[in-house]
Design a protein around this nucleic acid. Structure first.
Lengths: 234, 234
DNA sequence: CAGTGACTTTGCTGCAACGCAAACAGATCG
DNA sequence: CGATCTGTTTGCGTTGCAGCAAAGTCACTG
């Protein structure tokens, strides 16, 4: 790990409140690795040997059902921890993590978790706070799946991605990694067909512009209106 | 708190690994209260003044959407913690908790959370492990909502309730608190009508027996088959 | 630069499940 | 013990969306 990396890391949410010394001690025990696009960082059911920090890129967390259907649990952005099965008292990963683009991650051996949690209480607290907010997210999603219809769910999903990883462009806000209709379908519990239809409809209304593995939201505000139900219809 | 209560409490999951002394110190700072059926233990958006341990009864955790629709997030059984917003870095409750029957709970002021977590590390660890498993549950539910159709979701919900709170009876396993069709619908993202139809169909097939606010699963095994997709159809 | 594979669009059809409405129990209570 | 209230059943029309099929488009590769 170079010094440069450390200064980048110090600002990240999981390490808020840690001293430079502590941070060094933690980072010193990690090794960094590159994960090529479409490769797995870790795999569902696999033994949880490590936990990770995403330094660069985007990672898709996926759960696969026994009959092979996939659901995208969430996208990980740079600066987030992932694969923290150990923190939750698990010995296997509950999902797979696939690089959506070429990624750089920091990996720690799982056995270090208890040591870290004990030695760096702020780190533990930050992590659990994050777990808490993921729990909220998951419940929100359950509520969404239970009460909203497909178009609103898709709209919400796009807005979430835009907020999380949006990049301002001339025409609007671009989702910063390749994302297919199929991916969006797996995030929202629908089919790629339906997503395609929705996107073309929205494109005609000028809400979004989309292409192959690419979505730009041109009118976030109007899309939000649609997501929240006060549809403008025009 | 009577001595009797403490001996009951010592065996509960959140307190595994604690010494009798520590347990006493914790319980000594709680006060117990009774919550009548249909009353709230805490309310969504309300300031998180306390966290709770359910000693007796059953509690429904509910999220209400802006437009008034309700979703049952989970049922709490005796021995479980609830309302632990503090542990997750929140200052308000993300959901409401309603007593499904008359309940007895132990309440601690929220400000004690950080003290407890620091002074009784095992308690903290147990709690976070539980949060972790709730996160898994929530994700499982998202996957279910995304990939399974209504009948299987309802079947799964019933089986979960049976496993969590089932009471063996002559005819089968009874869900141990009053539960309406509407409740089951709010657990599974459907309507009371559909639940009613499913239950009558299953009753004809001899899988369940149900009445007003009451469900008994007579053939858990066959219901599981149905939930998992290898339907017997007969 | 033609050829192949991956992603997307679009039309059509079918049905699971919702929504509405009305009738039907069981409980509860004065 | 009739009246009322809350929960349940059931029929029927409607529809959102999945499922299937086929054609179209873009990007890469040899």
């Amino acid at each position: 790990m170079s010094r440069l990396d450390r200064s980048l890391i110090s600002g990240l949410a999981p390490f808020q409140g840690l001293t430079a010394v502590d941070l060094n001690r933690m980072v010193g025990q990690a090794h960094s690795l590159r994960i090529a696009k479409d490769e797995a960082v870790f795999e569902q059911e696999g033994e949880a040997h490590s936990f990770f920090l995403l330094l660069d890129g985007h990672v898709r967390v996926i759960r696969t059902t026994p009959d092979g259907q996939q659901v995208i649990v969430r996208y990980i952005s740079p600066g987030e921890l992932m694969g923290i099965a150990h923190a939750l008292g698990r010995t296997t990963y509950p999902a797979s993590a696939i690089a959506a683009v070429d990624c750089v991650v920091l990996a720690w051996p799982g056995r270090l978790w208890p040591e870290f949690a004990a030695a760096f209480p702020d780190f533990g607290a930050n992590t659990y706070k994050m777990v808490g907010s993921r729990l909220q997210d998951a419940h929100t999603r359950v509520v969404e799946m239970s009460t909203e219809q497909v178009d609103r769910r898709v709209a919400h999903a796009l807005l979430k991605l835009v907020n999380q990883t949006g990049r301002r462009m001339d025409e609007g806000v671009l989702i910063d990694f390749p994302i297919s209709r199929q991916d969006i379908a797996e995030m929202t519990g629908t089919t790629l067909h339906t997503v395609s239809r929705l996107l073309t409809a929205w494109e005609e209304q000028g809400l979004v512009k989309s292409g192959r593995q690419k979505v730009t939201v041109t009118e976030p505000h109007r899309l939000l209106m649609l997501a929240e139900g006060r549809a403008s219809k025009t």
